[in-house]
Nucleic acid binder design. Structure first.
Length: 545
RNA sequence: GUCCCCGUAGUUCAACGGAUAGAACGACUCCCUUCUAAGGAGUAGAUCGAGGUUCGAUUCCUCGCGGGGACACCA
């Protein structure tokens, strides 16, 4: 990565413990890359930032440019890649990358193809479990489930691309109280028992119960079993929507019933807890002293009725995960689980899961006619994820969620989304990619790489495009480090804009043969990077639009 | 009441403590004899308020104000 060459250079020169940050400024005049380290060092060194900056830079200028040795690598020298360095008040150092270095990077793209942007990992590959969606099979998926699903799916892609071994997990709460409640809700629906506030009352439940009178009567005395039957159907539906409708993939559907309870992970977990001495009895229930691990208060493991709580089952789930060789887990949770974070982190710590990271995706508010539509799964008033997919399609739904940081509280206007679907950013993106593809399809110029004289790519449009392409690996790295798929989504829009711009101003077919060949290499690289982006984001790459 | 998240153009969202706060949609001007105009060029338009920290704050801290969410021997 070009950026890391600059970073490495700075690290070598700067001995002080200061965060060395190199960024790509938005304004052209500030260079391709820039750093403000000199400003940060000024206080400690008691020198003016300008003085420090000049000193840092003087190390580069003296060096002769080496023979070109191919694509810039981690060990390349600054003088190999930089064409101009400027120190500007109050103390920024701005770098311009030489056309040659950009050309080398372009060759690197053409060589690595779908591997371009993969991060080299040194040492052993880490094995990480990523859990997302995990919606209870008590009904259809909500928009929030979909948001978490896209997020988890793409984050998994990014981590895999960065050299991690990922298991994508959906944890199915297919037993316990809420399934029992589901069963009773069905009975109440048929008037077999009295309805309660906490019961599920959605339209989907009525639909499920249609034509199942005999079945429902048969299980009138066994609501849990009835609930499980319904849950099985709902889960099948969820799987269909995720896999076929949204392309949200999972490697493992972990069943609370089968993999945790029936494999006696509840008992095993209790044994682990008991050994710590953090377990005590109070008012007939069994508690775990999670408060010792940062939780607000202690939590019940076994109720006074002798039943394991959801919390205990979740702890069992962690133990099961650990027992399969995972030391690291990332959970994507909805906003309603915020209050749950501290206690499961405590549980993970006690169980010995080395690393548990939790990402909370914020709520999705649904707007209709400028009014917020309150959504409640229990009351059955909500727009199902499936409905959104049907309305706008997978690519649009996916990209819409991915563009936004998980922290943002999103407002989603379904009617607007439908109406504006033709103006959706994802089309902008796909259109750029299609344009690139279509040039390649039309060109009949022989375009062997050895023939290409990349020196001819010297217009501002050529250079800007090459610069942005070279930033793809940096964008991957940043989105991995920050667990932020939106960085990649935004980058893809930047690339699309740059390419549309290029497309308007520069021609390929019809140019002088030498230039045409060189430009075709550039277009090929654009297609490769778009392809990689689309793979990571799992947006489809249309042939035509 | 306690805790968490959010507050940025008309709207939906971006912006490791950095330089002139970016896009998209909407509004207004232009640009199709040219590899797909689902495109390009341009104009107008924003950091909730008050303090603080510092060379420098949308970002960090405190206090307000507004919106959302969480606070079970439920899951």
């Amino acid at each position: 990565m070009i950026k890391s060459i600059i970073e490495n250079y700075l690290k070598k020169i700067i001995k002080e413990p200061v965060a060395i940050e190199v960024f790509a400024p938005e304004q052209e005049q500030f260079g391709h890359y820039s750093t403000s380290v000199a400003l940060k060092l000024a206080k400690e060194k008691k020198q003016s930032p300008m003085e420090i900056a000049n000193k840092i830079v003087s190390g580069v200028k003296g060096q002769p440019r080496r023979q070109r040795v191919g694509a810039p690598t981690e060990t390349s020298e600054m003088s190999d890649i930089v064409s101009k360095i400027e120190v500007v008040p109050p103390g920024f150092i701005n770098f311009w990358i030489s056309p040659e270095a950009l050309q080398d990077e372009l060759k690197e793209i053409l060589k690595k193809k779908e591997k371009y942007g993969r991060l080299n990992v040194k040492g052993k590959i880490s094995k990480v479990q990523l859990e997302y969606v995990s919606a209870n099979p008590t009904g259809p998926l909500t928009l929030a489930n979909g948001r978490g699903g896209f997020f988890g799916d793409v984050l998994s892609n990014i981590l895999e691309f960065s050299g991690c071994k990922i298991e994508r997990e959906y944890y199915v709460n297919d037993t316990g109280n809420q399934i029992f409640t589901l069963g009773r809700s069905i009975l109440a629906l048929r008037g077999l028992i009295d309805s309660e506030e906490k019961f599920y009352k959605g339209q989907y439940l009525k639909k499920w119960a249609e034509g199942k009178s005999a079945l429902i009567k048969r299980f009138a005395n066994n609501p849990l079993k009835l609930g499980q039957l319904a849950a099985k159907d709902f889960l099948a539906e969820i799987k269909k929507v995720l896999n076929k409708g949204a392309d949200i993939c999972f490697d493992r559907w972990t069943s609370e019933d089968k993999h945790i309870h029936k494999k006696s992970f509840i008992t095993k977990t209790m044994e682990v807890f008991n050994r710590t001495g953090l377990v005590y009895e109070k008012e007939g229930a069994v508690w775990l002293k999670t408060s010792k691990y940062g939780d607000d208060k202690d939590r019940v493991l076994i109720t006074s009725d002798g039943l394991p709580t959801y919390f205990l089952a979740d702890a069992g789930h962690f133990l099961e995960t650990k027992s399969r060789g995972f030391n690291s887990k990332i959970m994507i949770l909805g906003p309603d689980h915020y209050g749950y974070v501290k206690r499961i982190q405590a549980a993970a710590k006690i169980i010995g899961l080395e690393k548990l990271e939790i990402i909370i995706t914020q709520a999705v508010r649904l707007i209709k006619d400028n009014q917020e539509v309150k959504m409640s799964k229990r009351k059955g008033e909500f727009v199902a994820f499936e409905e959104l997919l049907k309305e706008v399609g997978k690519d649009i739904a996916r990209f819409f969620f991915l563009m936004h940081s998980p922290d943002s509280h999103m407002d989603f206007d379904l009617s607007l989304a439908k109406e504006q679907s033709m103006k959706n950013p994802v089309y902008y993106l796909q259109y750029a990619a299609v344009r690139a593809q279509s040039i390649l399809n039309k060109s009949n110029v022989k375009n062997k790489m050895s023939n290409a004289n990349l020196n001819l790519l010297n217009t501002p449009e050529d250079i800007n495009l090459m610069r942005l392409l070279a930033r793809f690996p940096e964008s991957v790295e940043e989105s991995r480090n920050k667990y932020s798929p939106q960085i990649l989504a935004r980058y893809s829009l930047d690339l699309a804009r740059e390419f549309h711009n290029f497309y308007e101003r520069e021609r390929i077919i019809g140019e002088a043969p030498e230039l045409a060949v060189a430009r075709l290499q550039l277009i090929k690289a654009v297609r490769i990077v778009f392809g990689n982006l689309f793979n990571l984001l799992d947006v489809s790459y249309p042939k035509k639009m």
